[in-house]
Design a protein around this nucleic acid. Structure first.
Length: 284
DNA sequence: GAGGATGGCGTATGCCGAGT
DNA sequence: ACTCGGCATACGCCATCCTC
């Protein structure tokens, strides 16, 4: 505002003239085919090697600022810019086991445990399978070799299995009929994808609920992360959120990795959380 | 007191399913 | 088409605990 700048390109140029660091590889394209040419150029491994950092794609933006304003944004992203992502690096690994996790809401989530493999810069040993339908759609069996990638170069994802590499020892996955944490019968509502444990006293759910209660979005109690909540539950000190507020220093000192300092800090953080507004308490 | 180990937490993402 | 909640991954930094 106040400046005669009407395009993204001019803005970058201006910032550069001011001495701020801008990326020298940006380009204003005249039409869409030029955009595609630019994307294809940077998709080349050799071209990417000329950069001192890794890239996973190219950002395409509408150049005209008034058009950007007209397009606006959704809750998460602008409607005038989008990332063109290069195909993710894919590797082959083996499914050692398919475990089932019980979440805060009782959802049973199948989780693949993999032969640890290096992909896109980090070692992946687990990948969520979301629900039983995905396991059967992608025909993922225990013992299978599978194609693994990191969606967006971050989230591990099993793309497909490699049935041609089976030797007959592979086992199909079956969603348990009983909750792996409490043993009560699980239910899957017709039309829904998720199988749930509906036992209100399920210990796995209880721990997750307590973790949620203390988490950033809810009561935001520093020092009450997953590991410490689990420890408190296992020690029989906490069963429901009110129990947090009844903890004494001696209780904490008996726990692993708790000394004077951390015990005092935690008690202070718990006391502090009483000041949180009602909305946070309700969410917790 | 040094140095290693550990947990918390922020950062950086994405998919799925249900509802609007 | 979009929002939102739920669930998931890894990595790096920092504070603190534990061991020697």
């Amino acid at each position: 505002t106040g400046l005669a700048i009407h395009t993204q390109g001019a803005a970058l140029e201006y910032l550069h003239r001011l001495g701020l660091r801008t990326n020298p590889h940006s380009k204003v394209c005249g039409d869409f085919s030029e955009v595609l040419d630019f994307v294809r150029l940077w998709q080349e491994k050799d071209q990417r090697k000329s950069l001192p950092y890794d890239i996973d794609g190219v950002v395409v933006k509408v150049n005209e600022l008034p058009a950007q304003r007209d397009l606006g944004t959704t809750a998460r992203s602008p409607r005038w810019a989008i990332a063109y992502k290069f195909p993710a690096e894919q590797v082959i690994t083996k499914v050692l086991k398919i475990g089932v996790q019980v979440g805060r809401t009782g959802a049973l989530t199948p989780l693949a445990e993999l032969e640890p493999t290096l992909v896109a810069g980090s070692t992946v040993s687990r990948a969520t399978l979301h629900n039983e339908d995905i396991v059967s759609e992608r025909d993922i069996r225990i013992g299978d070799y599978v194609v693994l990638q990191k969606a967006g170069d971050v989230i591990p994802e099993i793309v497909r299995s490699l049935p041609e590499r089976r030797d007959g020892s592979e086992l199909p996955f079956q969603m348990p009929t009983d909750c792996p944490a409490c043993g009560s019968q699980v239910v899957r509502m017709p039309g829904e994808a998720v199988t749930r444990c509906v036992n209100g006293r399920c210990p796995a759910q209880r721990v997750e609920k307590l973790i949620h209660f203390a988490s950033k979005g809810a009561m935001d109690i520093e020092g009450l992360g997953p590991a410490n909540v689990m420890q408190l539950v296992e020690a029989g000190l906490v069963e429901s959120p009110v129990d947090f507020y009844r903890l004494a220093k001696e209780d904490l000192l008996s726990l692993e990795r708790f000394g004077e300092k951390s015990a005092d800090n935690l008690l202070a953080a718990i006391a502090q959380s009483k000041e949180q507004p009602l909305a946070r308490l309700l969410f917790g």
